[in-house]
Design a protein around this nucleic acid. Structure first.
Lengths: 168, 168
DNA sequence: CGCTTCCTTCAGAAATTTGTGAAGTTAAGA
DNA sequence: TCTTAACTTCACAAATTTCTGAAGGAAGCG
């Protein structure tokens, strides 16, 4: 029986934590995410409190403060983490909300929108009546369809989740 | 009025085609795709026949046969293009099927599966009763939910598409 | 009001990724 | 069977990305 290890801050089982962090980060990287943001994100996901300071992240991941800073800025822009000022301290905490982050992941809305814009432009410039134009128009229609569906899907997830876990 | 340009093979309006190809490829790159596969894919999408030979791709994109070869291998692995042997010629054609490719894009099933595996591993090793374990379990549940929803969504798309465009 | 702590920014070094040229392989056509 | 066209593979060069160390700036605390 592998003792689940006590939930002491950075303690627990650094070995197991690190293994998960690196493994999960590797998968995120393969899906197109930059390495450092992926590692930071995985580390937060694996923390008991769901939040860590810059310093803690640097220590745990063995990287410089500069690297943490860059990664965290990226993640915040993508709405995958939020920053919190620890009142009465110049420490900053970075947090994953258990629902916030995967909404960010699916609602790659911004990405879809840009794809749609590029496709629309293509249809216009190549001509809607050309075979290529028609193919692009159909592709565009697909993305527009997906856009709508995703919103509905997230709504169903919220319901499903509340039934299973109760509110956040 | 900007003449839609004649649908002559490589002709049409090389200017407009190139503009679309580079623009759309750039968006795909930003979403995490490698540059050359993105350009090749965009070029195929913008071709009237929906298929091009290695040589045509090389000429149009101004890259070496080696680069085309690498890009095409990647795209084929991702099921985003299919290869066709032109009967009675050693030319190979690469093709986008109008439905095949976006199914490949959305059914990032393989990616999701690997994420799920990594998360499951994390839950096990950190302990399902720890706060971190619970967070990961919930995340895992979310991906499993998405898995199922995507299949249903694609089915709805097929119906929607057939009504709009008729069968392929 | 200055000291100290923590984070950020920036320039550059290191590592990784990407594309090329050249040689190799397969298969059509004579 | 031999020639030749077409794609692939491989080693290396170039470009890009990624991280670090050092300097700079904001905010608590004495």
């Amino acid at each position: 029986m592998t003792e689940p290890a006590e939930a002491t801050g950075p303690g627990r089982d650094p070995e197991a934590v690190s293994k998960f962090v690196e493994g999960f980060a590797a998968q995120l990287v393969e899906a197109g995410m930059q390495r450092m943001p992926a590692r930071v994100f995985a580390a937060l996901l694996a923390s008991d409190s769901g939040s860590l300071t810059s310093a803690e992240l640097g220590t745990q991941l063995k990287v410089s403060p500069a690297a943490v800073s860059g990664a965290v800025r990226y993640l915040a822009q993508q709405h995958m983490v939020s920053r919190e000022r620890e009142p009465g301290s110049r420490r900053e905490r970075y947090r994953v909300h258990s629902d916030q982050w995967y909404e960010a992941l699916t609602s790659r809305e911004a990405v879809l929108k840009r794809w749609e814009a590029a496709l629309g432009e293509g249809v216009r410039s190549l001509g809607a009546e050309t075979p290529a134009g028609r193919r692009m128009a159909e592709t565009l229609a697909f993305f527009e369809f997906v856009d709508g569906e995703i919103a509905a899907m997230m709504e169903r997830w919220r319901v499903h989740r509340e039934q299973t876990y109760g509110r956040d």
